[in-house]
Amino acid sequence: MVKNSVSKKSRQKYTTEKLLLAVEAVRQKKLSLRKASTKYGVPVMTIQDRVKGKTDDVCLQGRPTVIPLEIEQELAKKLKDAAAKGFGLTRRMLAVRVARLCKRMQLKTPFRNGVPGKEWLSRFMKRHPDLSIRSPTALSTVRARMLNPVVTGNYFHALNETLDSLKLKDQPMKIWNIDETSVPLTHKPAKVISETGVRNLPGRVGNSRDNVSVMACINAAGNEIPPMVIIKGKTYKSLYAYNTKEGVPNTMYTFQQRAWMEDALGELWFKQTFSEALWS
């Protein structure tokens, strides 16, 4: 005899924040039950039970959480704050801290060895959809220390005074900025069409790991001047290996033993390129 299949009850697709907003809107008589349900995507009976006090506002479907929901929300907030300051926690670090928290609060947990596993993390992320696993951008400690309100505020205050003293606020064409960057000679393979599910997809590149340095310059009005390209070499003959004729017109090409920017090269570029472009 074939057993009749029974469809499982669909799980909630709304967040706790939307639920609380819907309940608060009905309590303050800003929206009716049906309008609040439509706006926030929360079932009418779910809102009604909380408005009438039959169910706690923060009560969730399924089994109760190991950590009280109020503490979970505070934990989620601290995770976001830590990541924003450059001290984000990995999944392993979070598991260790949760284990310590449960031990300190003397909570009974189903965790093996007292440490939550992948299943708990997955459920935790679902309960807090504003969290996600991200790859952070590398930021050196020195730059991180300088990126604070006091230092940043002092910089813009000094910049404002300089622009005022030189009367440059209404002359963006006279405000120039230069920067040096390193460009690898090995190209990055472009995206290609391949079989779905292939784990290893090679893309051939050259064996060279050399870089060239480029000094670029642009003003506040959006105008640029020809750059300077520094090639690795000891003599001028090192430039012969590059097709400089096909480069950006009027680009200045020079060489350095490691293709690094030096004071002498910067001064040479300033006199021959920047000064001529500025006064021509």
Results as ranks from 00 to 15, higher is better:
89 L>Q: 14
188 K>L: 10
190 A>G: 08
160 N>E: 12
134 R>S: 12
203 G>Q: 09
246 E>H: 04
216 A>C: 15
243 N>Y: 07
146 M>G: 11
16 T>N: 14
63 R>Q: 13
158 A>E: 14
129 P>H: 08
42 V>E: 06
94 L>S: 01
230 I>E: 03
262 E>Y: 02
202 P>V: 05
153 G>R: 14
220 A>T: 00
238 S>F: 04
47 I>V: 05
270 F>V: 06
266 G>V: 01
103 K>M: 07
273 T>M: 04
213 S>E: 04
192 V>W: 03
193 I>R: 15
152 T>Q: 13
204 R>K: 10
213 S>F: 02
83 A>W: 08
213 S>I: 01
89 L>S: 06
35 K>N: 12
10 S>A: 13
88 G>N: 06
34 R>T: 06
207 N>F: 11
238 S>H: 01
279 W>E: 08
279 W>K: 11
233 G>T: 02
45 M>D: 15
115 V>C: 06
229 V>F: 01
199 R>C: 10
9 K>V: 12
267 E>T: 02
263 D>K: 09
84 A>H: 07
277 A>E: 04
30 K>E: 15
144 A>L: 15
94 L>N: 00
186 T>F: 09
66 V>R: 03
215 M>K: 07
124 F>A: 09
14 Y>P: 13
157 H>P: 11
63 R>A: 08
193 I>E: 13
196 T>E: 13
143 R>I: 10
182 S>V: 02
121 L>W: 12
114 G>S: 07
22 A>V: 03
13 K>M: 11
183 V>Y: 05
252 M>F: 06
239 L>I: 00
39 K>E: 15
77 K>E: 15
254 T>V: 04
123 R>G: 13
17 E>Q: 12
95 A>I: 07
213 S>D: 01
97 R>V: 04
220 A>Y: 00
60 L>W: 06
172 P>Y: 08
229 V>E: 03
46 T>Y: 04
159 L>I: 05
186 T>Q: 15
137 T>V: 14
169 K>V: 09
189 P>G: 03
21 L>P: 00
131 L>F: 07
101 L>D: 04
101 L>N: 01
226 P>N: 01
175 I>T: 03
11 R>S: 14
189 P>K: 02
92 R>F: 11
265 L>M: 02
8 K>C: 10
39 K>Q: 15
192 V>L: 08
141 T>I: 11
140 S>T: 14
210 D>T: 05
7 S>C: 11
6 V>E: 11
165 S>I: 08
233 G>E: 03
126 K>A: 15
166 L>Q: 13
241 A>P: 04
140 S>R: 12
141 T>E: 14
269 W>S: 02
227 P>E: 00
150 V>K: 11
213 S>L: 02
27 R>N: 08
144 A>W: 07
194 S>L: 11
